[in-house]
């Protein structure tokens, strides 16, 4: 019993563990039920999950800034970046450097635009990034007309599809990214500032934090990662198509929330985002194996997101309630906090 209680306390601080358990459970189930699941098929799942992890990490930074901030422009950035890569790299390794630079510049530009709208003009993040996404959609349509053809730089293709032994290079890239992010969040000043801003903006300001640059950098990180992801994804699928970024919109948010990052901001876990990405891809793969039509796959993903949020919502409530009750005299009314009063025994 003690071990169980200990684990539950530990798991409260390490929320990534739930998505890891989910991955393990689903994978065991699949290998048990179907003979088609093996370690090598897991490596395929890892490859797909890596692309999701990269955008997911970016999305996580934005979500962590709190106030329900979400970057809805990632899908359009991915698509546009893939098209721009076709325009700039033109399938030549010689152009690869310039292609990467342009992808980063694209991400910086979109991130800067989003930051301008959200931080300077005070437009709610969802609306601002939604609108940015529409503007980018037009840019994508225009570049779609301009592309010379579907040719991908071999070197880039190697990164996107290659394997070292049985491990996809992309998976190594994603894991390195997750490790770096974990370090940044946990051990750097920036990570602390981000968490503080996400938890309580007024307190952060009065503690001397300049909230604007912190929030802006989260949006920039998100856009740059999405842009690089688009470049690699384009190389992976060998070209680009309209709407190719679309699935990543909901999935990136789902990966963040499912991984244990708090949707209300202030606490992020890169490891959780990684495991949740794998879990989501596993779910999608399972549905494909079973042969569910694409419509049903959408439905299942939607339900998973709402279900996880509804469950996580209760934890957030409990947390808020505990904040409120810590101070008797200043407790906001139970109704305002939304927490139900507890009845004595």
């Amino acid at each position: 019993m003690n071990a169980l209680a200990g684990f539950s306390i530990w798991a409260q601080r390490n929320r990534w563990v739930w998505s890891a358990v989910g991955v393990l459970f689903l994978w065991l189930l699949l290998s048990f039920v179907t003979s088609r699941f093996s370690l090598s098929s897991l490596s395929g799942v890892m490859l797909s999950a890596s692309f999701l992890t990269v955008v997911g990490i970016g999305q996580m930074f934005v979500v962590t800034t709190g106030r329900g901030n979400i970057d809805l422009s990632v899908a359009s950035v991915i698509t546009l970046s893939a098209f721009v890569a076709l325009l700039t790299v033109k399938g030549q390794d010689a152009n690869l450097a310039i292609g990467v630079v342009i992808a980063i510049v694209l991400g910086l530009a979109v991130g800067a635009l989003n930051s301008l709208l959200v931080v300077v003009l005070g437009i709610p993040a969802i609306i601002a990034t939604l609108a940015t996404g529409y503007v980018l959609a037009t840019a994508t349509l225009l570049s779609n007309k301009a592309i010379p053809g579907f040719a991908v730089s071999p070197a880039l293709k190697d990164v996107a599809t290659g394997r070292i032994g049985d491990v996809p290079i992309m998976a190594i890239v994603a894991i390195l990214g997750v490790a770096t992010t974990s370090f940044v969040l946990r051990y750097t000043v920036f990570g602390q500032l981000l968490s503080a801003v996400g938890q309580n903006r007024a307190a952060a300001r009065l503690a001397g934090i300049r909230n604007g640059p912190v929030i802006a950098s989260a949006f920039v990180i998100s856009s740059v990662l999405a842009s690089l992801d688009g470049l690699l994804l384009g190389a992976y699928i060998g070209g680009a198509f309209l709407e190719m970024g679309q699935p990543y919109l909901l999935q990136s948010i789902a990966a963040v929330v499912l991984g244990g990052t708090l949707i209300f901001g202030g606490a992020a876990t890169a490891l959780g985002t990684l495991f949740a990405s794998i879990l989501l891809i596993l779910i999608v793969t399972t549905m494909q194996i079973i042969g569910l039509p694409p419509g049903v796959q959408d439905i299942v993903q939607g339900i998973v997101v709402i279900f996880v949020l509804a469950l996580a919502g209760r934890q957030a409530l409990a947390r808020r309630a505990s904040v409120d009750s810590a101070e008797s005299e200043q407790t906001s009314a139970k109704a305002a906090a939304g927490a139900a009063p507890t009845r004595p025994e």
């Binding site: 329900g68 979400i70 969802i126 919109l249 909901l250 948010i253 789902a254 929330v257 949707i263 209300f264 039509p293 694409p294 419509g295 049903v296 796959q297 959408d298 439905i299 299942v300 993903q301 939607g302 339900i303 998973v304 997101v305 709402i306 949020l309 509804a310 996580a312 919502g313 209760r314 957030a316 409530l317 939304g338």
Partner: peptide, 30 residues
Amino acid sequence: GLIQARKIPAIVVTLGASFIWVGIGYALQP
């Protein structure tokens, strides 16, 4: 009601719901 009762962000729930609506639509009429 769910959004209010569980105090969860409407944006994410409605975004998730949009996948459900579209999914049902596709399933009925590809």
